[in-house]
């Protein structure tokens, strides 16, 4: 029955667009448009930055989105453990390199636990939007417009996190990490936020324990990762200035998590 006649490889884009629901419910149309618009924005962003880096001379890695989606179940489980419990991560935080064509390159995520990927950030972001909608619904305040608002709020938080990491790297004299790496590192924020929001849905008071805990874990994870990124780029290690900026990254996680975790209709709060 499913005879895949002439399955052309075509342009493999990393997003999926849904067909419109034939039963024409207004809510379903809004949801479908939401998914299409949101993932379309992601596709444009990823492809745009990818083409930008392909033409760049300082591009040292294979800056294609395919690299960030070479994952499997084993990697995702281990990576989630590293992100949510960075204290228990034994071993090093350095990415594994391999010489490819006389040029240093990093191994894809499927072989290296320390490599960034884009699957976990995207899934965590989607989970955040859905958990936010579920939380609003249980309080009787759900509407597709509120879901759209929370989607934009999440995107803004992701952008602020990525901008924070980028500005920190630039101010320390090493701005050569690929943009998709920064986006992936910033996206891991949503795994902790999803855990905190899920805790609040299940048991209201666990939120006040989970939120500081996930802030701390994300801060530790980012500090260790950014330290590795810096060390890979800058050989002259100015100790005090680096440490202050890395500590600043960790401290900014607390207000950012609180803002993203506070699910209300008013998106300024």
């Amino acid at each position: 029955m499913y005879s895949n006649v002439g399955s052309q490889p075509g342009v493999q884009q990393p997003q999926t667009s849904l067909p419109p629901n034939p039963f024409g419910s207004a809510f379903n149309v809004a949801g479908s448009g939401l998914i299409r618009g949101g993932l379309g924005a992601y596709g444009g962003k990823i492809l745009g930055s990818s083409s930008e880096y392909v033409q760049s001379n300082i591009s040292r890695y294979f800056s294609d989105p395919q690299y960030y989606f070479q994952v499997n179940d084993q990697y995702v489980k281990n990576k989630l453990k590293v992100v949510l419990l960075p204290f228990l991560h034994r071993g090093h935080w350095t990415r594994i390199t391999e010489p490819v064509g006389g040029r240093l390159s990093y191994k894809p995520p499927i072989y290296d636990i320390n490599a960034p990927d884009l699957y976990i950030p995207l899934m965590a972001f989607g989970t955040y939007v859905i958990l936010a909608g579920l939380s609003l619904g249980l309080h009787g305040k759900f509407s597709p417009e509120a879901l759209n608002l929370l989607f934009i709020k999440g995107l803004l938080g992701w952008f602020m996190q990525a901008a924070l990491l980028k500005v920190t790297l630039l101010s320390l004299g090493s701005g050569e990490a690929p943009l998709l790496d920064i986006i992936a590192y910033a996206g891991y924020t949503f795994t902790g936020i999803c855990l905190a929001v899920l805790g609040r849905i299940i048991l209201g008071y666990s939120y006040y324990f989970l939120m500081p805990w996930t802030c701390l874990c994300m801060g530790v994870f980012l500090v260790k990762t950014m330290k590795r990124v810096l060390f890979a780029e800058v050989r002259s290690y100015d100790s005090s200035r680096h440490h202050y900026l890395l500590l600043f990254i960790a401290l900014v996680q607390f207000p950012l998590f609180t803002w993203l975790g506070n699910i209300t209709i008013n998106w300024l709060l």
Binding site: P9, V11, Q12, T16, F69
Partner: peptide, 17 residues
């Protein structure tokens, strides 16, 4: 997003979903 092994195109994904 994770099934990027080459022979799965966008139309098949859309159809299945």
């Amino acid at each position: 997003l994770a099934g990027r092994t080459g022979n799965l195109d966008l139309h098949t994904c859309t159809s299945v979903v």
